[in-house]
Design a protein around this nucleic acid. Structure first.
Length: 507
RNA sequence: GGCUCCGUAGCUCAAUGGCAGAGCAGUUGACUCUUAAUCAAUUGGUUGGAGGUUCGAGUCCUCCCGGAGUCACCA
């Protein structure tokens, strides 16, 4: 849709034209910044503290004009850069009539980027400011940002007047959201720290960070429908990966003791407060470890990341206090389901009998669902109750095609999922490394796929070939990074920790 | 995909079925220590879109578009 300027935008375009006619560069290529806003104030206060006349602190600062207050032949502006805000005091005496006219006539105005050179000083009201001698336009803003005024109280608390809160527009125009909402910028700083802390932790544990294909000829490693695409030159159908699992485990065959990847997964499923079609996942695989080792690592990792991001292991999420410090509760799936639903699924080992008791207790049980899916459905009832971090352990084999069997129990595998704040955060198992067993699982999946289960994975012959070379016993693990970011930034929806969440086409 | 709610000026919001309004921003003017600056005046609208009911629709009805919540499926 072509752009139609609004009235305000037409005003600004006229100003732009006037500036250009006057020979003033509206988008110059070069800047000469010497200080960020915060550095300028710090340098000034350091000299003040020395008790010297602080007039000598020369600075050139740059930023976006966020507040304009013209008082006749002098003006006060606040400009904002990545480090914060600083006040400019612009006097006609100091900058000259020509430059001052740009200020007074608002040819340079709110939202424009400017460069200001001058000397640090303190106003009568006590605010460290730049007394400006040189003022230069750096970039003209044609469209105005939403106007938000701030009042800073004596104690430093900031009250904001006016807001930009329309969620649809905030997501579609995240740049505008970020530009005016500093708290949103902070969320994404914390998200970045979350990712970097995960990486730091795994590096320190001796894992090797790797990158594996996103475009895959065969998808697998999770129960989900894929996006499909096509390579034109090779005339090859490809899938966007739904997990990293099968490629990462190939690398253990290749004699790395531990590998991990942080990256994007794509699942062609519904969108919700905790689901986006593309999302960030971290997976690791560790040779000579089992799922108990992985549980221990999980607790330490999440506690470490929380510490790095929030400064502690106790967090508040949507009003609930959550303690992430190890050890976490470890709960057998059977016991959890029994306690929450009153159903002991092990006493109902086939689908019809389990479905019957579920319906009797008032739970939905589709008649075509396999036994494992029914158990998974019951786990869904448990999920919302798991506010404090909890490992749910030992899953039915039927819904865990890459996990190793529990010794002495052919119906269950060594698998756990962990939950925090009622959300599934991740999934892990003692990895299946017996090629014959793995092949049998693939064939079972092929049968359910033929029976209409679109989430069953196709048989990956190359993965089996890798496993036949010998795969060390290993523990593997995956976690939703977006969900952890939600937790650590106290955001209710995944869209608020995604810079550009998926949206429908605009009309 | 089902159900519920929402969509009015650049932003945030008003308007019993009866003249579409306010604050901020914008525009014009005053002001050389303001800081949500202040004061005076003022511009700005296809009420998401298309139909319908009605003497009259922002408001009621139908469909469409977009968003939010929720359920289903999934991480």
């Amino acid at each position: 849709m072509p752009w139609e300027p609004t009235n305000v935008e037409r005003d600004r375009l006229e100003k732009l034209a006037r500036l250009q006619e006057a020979g003033i560069a509206c988008y110059p290529p070069r800047v000469e910044r010497t200080h960020t806003s915060a550095q300028a104030v710090a340098a000034f206060e350091a000299v003040e503290a020395d008790g010297e006349a602080a007039e000598g602190v020369q600075v050139v600062v740059c930023g976006r004009v966020r507040r304009v207050n013209i008082k006749g032949r002098m003006a006060f502006w606040h400009i904002e850069d990545g480090a914060g805000r600083i006040q400019l005091m612009i006097r006609e005496d100091n900058v000259g009539e020509e430059t001052y006219a740009l200020v007074k006539e608002k040819l340079i105005e709110l939202d424009d980027f400017v460069q200001a050179g001058g000397v640090m000083m303190r106003t009568h009201a006590g605010e460290a400011s730049v007394q400006v001698f040189e003022l230069k336009l750096l970039a003209k803003a044609v469209s105005p940002l939403p106007v938000i005024k701030e009042k800073v109280e004596e104690d430093g608390t900031v009250t904001r007047f006016g807001e930009f809160s329309d969620v649809e527009m905030r997501y579609r125009q995240r740049y505008a959201d970020l530009a005016v909402n500093p708290d949103v910028r902070e969320v994404f700083r914390k998200r970045a720290r979350t990712v970097s802390a995960i990486r730091q932790f795994l590096d320190d544990e001796g894992f090797l960070e790797v990158e594996t294909p996103i475009l895959q000829p065969i998808y697998g490693g999770a129960a989900a429908r894929p996006f499909t695409t096509h390579h034109n030159q090779l005339d090859q159908d490809l899938y966007l990966r739904i997990s990293f699992e099968l490629y990462l485990k190939r690398l253990l065959v290749g004699m790395y003791d531990g590998v991990y990847e942080i990256g994007r997964d794509f699942r062609n499923e519904g969108v919700s407060f905790k689901h986006n079609p593309e999302f960030t996942q971290v997976e690791f695989y560790k040779a000579y470890a089992d799922y108990v080792d992985v549980m221990n690592l999980t607790e330490r990792l999440v506690a470490y990341v929380a510490e790095q991001v929030t400064g502690g292991t106790t967090i508040t999420f949507q009003g609930q206090q959550i303690n992430l410090a190890p050890p976490w509760k470890r709960w057998l799936m059977r016991d959890a389901i029994l306690e929450v639903t009153g159903i002991d699924y092990r006493e109902h080992q086939d689908a019809p009998s389990l479905a019957a008791v579920m319906r009797q207790k008032g739970y939905a049980a589709p008649s075509d669902a396999a036994w494992g899916k029914l158990v998974d459905g019951l786990l869904g009832e448990v999920e919302a109750t798991l506010i404090q971090p909890t490992f749910i352990m030992d899953y039915p084999r039927d819904i865990s095609p890459f996990a190793k069997m529990k010794p002495g129990d052919p119906t269950h595998v060594e698998r756990f999922e962990f939950f925090i704040a009622g959300m599934e955060m991740g999934n892990a198992f003692t990895e299946l490394n017996d090629p014959a067993d793995q092949e049998a699982r693939f064939l079972e999946m092929a049968r359910s796929h033929a029976a209409g289960d679109e989430e069953a994975n196709p048989l990956d012959e190359d993965y089996l070939r890798a496993m036949r070379y010998g795969m060390p016993p290993c523990g593997g693990w995956g976690m939703g990074v977006d969900r952890l970011a939600m937790l650590l930034t106290d955001q209710r929806t995944i869209r608020d920790v995604l810079l550009f969440p998926h949206m429908r086409d605009q009309a």
